[in-house]
Design a protein around this nucleic acid. Structure first.
Length: 417
RNA sequence: GGAGGGAUUCCCGAGCGGUCAAAGGGGGCAGACUGUAAAUCUGCUGCAUAUGCUUCGGAGGUUCGAAUCCUCCUCCCUCCA
């Protein structure tokens, strides 16, 4: 890596965000001398983003921190079509209303990292539905389609892999890269957006946008991609016990979010500190140098810092304290994720299996039953061996709550509600 | 348009009339060991439960009995036009 002069690229490079750029020198100069507008595209297929998108979000964050203007492009238009790659028959298409709801949810987590206009910042959130939905097919083909060579499109990895593996590739999907390229050009026209960032798998698509921009408007556009993140043992980022690591608190409690980062593998701690926190690099180096069990301290800091960025310092500290009480002292902390069971139901007694499901510790009675057989379930720290066990109000020992545990790490408090 | 091949549980992939809720691997979860880590080993991995129910692209049919055979449909792939 060359030594960058611009603050933005220097930080990104030092912290491990950069995989590839389209023109190192020119890009560096651009960021060093101008206020640059850049964007990253996101799906609008769920009401929340998850940890897998966090690296992209952090890039935008740094962009704004170093004086530039980040744009989050929501794929409202492309989400309308639905991703054809998953071939389980006709996935339910998202309605405009669904997408609108999703955008609201997603915006919520973005605002932890970026300052939008109403927060006194210059960040923008735009939706590609604004220009994609009204395209005229013939006009589009003439204006845009003429610039694409199918020969070349076929040579892109995303396409080639599919063809080589004899998997089907719909025409619709084939067109995604064109739409994405068009997005870039449209943004450059509307907002003078100069750079598109994304994961390294997006390289081909971004390059297409650059070419298209040059051909249509003689614009000079840039690409920057980040490495595709996996954990050291090869797992995908953003997955955990209960599924995706959602950013919105209503989909994943702050405590569980904290726990996700707390359980980072040793080998990933330093890398993650650089990518997902804003801590100074020299401090990170110190933490990363810790060995063996001491590394656990670094993991706690990682968890708290990442959580603080998203949910605020106060919430992060609370999660950290809850974890300390739970694990270090073996006590029952009152801030563990909590569910309420109607008083009448609890007085009458409820089966453990049902309770497990209600607490979201099992997806079905069957799964709960199996976990009990496997010795994974504890009630108030006492192993549960009888799947028919009835739980009633007498189990509320800790301050009006009972603690239901699945494995060593997942605990839920049950209260009468 | 012609000829052939294929669609299996989260993924890959066996099965080719009963012993199939369906081999094996991956992934995921739990247990043991640890440091709330990794690696390793073990167990679990359709739903409900006391021998019940719903699964093998879809709809019918043959049979005591079908993921397995037949018919039609849908989608995919390869070769030829």
């Amino acid at each position: 890596m060359t030594a960058y002069k611009s603050d933005f690229l220097k930080i990104l490079s030092d912290r491990g965000f950069i995989y590839q750029t389209s023109d190192d020198a020119a890009l560096d100069k651009l960021f060093d001398t101008e206020t640059v507008t850049g964007y990253i595209g996101f799906d609008a297929t769920a009401t929340s983003l998850h940890a897998g998108s966090l690296i992209q979000i952090m890039m935008l964050h740094w962009m704004q921190q170093t004086g530039h203007r980040p744009i989050t492009l929501m794929g409202g238009g492309t989400s309308m079509i639905g991703d054809p790659s998953l071939r389980d028959e006709a996935r339910k298409l998202l309605t405009p209303d669904d997408i609108e709801t999703n955008l609201v949810g997603i915006r919520q987590s973005f605002s932890s990292y970026l300052k939008f206009e109403e927060q006194g910042g210059n960040a923008l959130m735009v939706n590609n539905a604004d220009w994609l939905m009204d395209l005229n097919y013939v006009k589009f083909l003439r204006d845009v389609g003429q610039h694409f060579s199918v020969n070349r499109m076929l040579s892109f990895d995303s396409v080639k892999l599919r063809l080589d593996r004899e998997q089907s590739l719909s025409f619709l999907e084939f067109n995604y890269m064109i739409l994405q390229a068009y997005d870039f050009v449209e943004l450059s026209k509307r907002y003078d957006c100069r750079i598109q960032m994304g994961g390294s798998d997006q390289w081909g698509n971004i390059i297409n946008g650059i070419d298209l921009g040059r051909r249509m408007n003689n614009a000079s556009l840039f690409a920057l991609t980040s490495p595709l993140l996996t954990t050291s043992s090869g797992g995908k980022m953003g997955k955990s016990a209960s599924g995706a690591v959602w950013l919105n608190a209503d989909k994943l409690s702050v405590y569980d979010f904290w726990q996700y980062w707390r359980n980072t593998e040793d080998a990933d701690v330093e890398r993650f500190l650089k990518l997902y926190t804003t801590m100074p690099l020299d401090e990170i180096a110190k933490l990363g140098a810790l060995q063996g069990a001491e590394l656990n301290e670094a993991k706690k800091i990682l968890a708290t810092e990442v959580t603080a960025l998203l949910h605020g310092r106060e919430e992060a500290d609370k999660a950290s304290e809850t974890a300390r009480v739970t694990f270090a002292e073996g006590q029952t902390a009152s801030d563990l994720p909590t569910i309420s069971v109607p008083a009448a139901e609890l007085d009458a007694g409820i089966g453990v299996l049902a309770l497990m499901v209600q607490a979201d510790l099992a997806k079905s009675n069957g799964e709960a039953r199996r976990s009990i057989k496997g010795g994974a379930v504890k009630l108030n720290d006492q192993p549960v061996s009888d799947e028919k066990l009835m739980v009633d109000s007498s189990a509320l020992v800790n301050d009006g709550a009972l603690k239901l545990s699945f494995g060593k790490k997942r605990h839920v408090l049950v209260r009468k509600g």
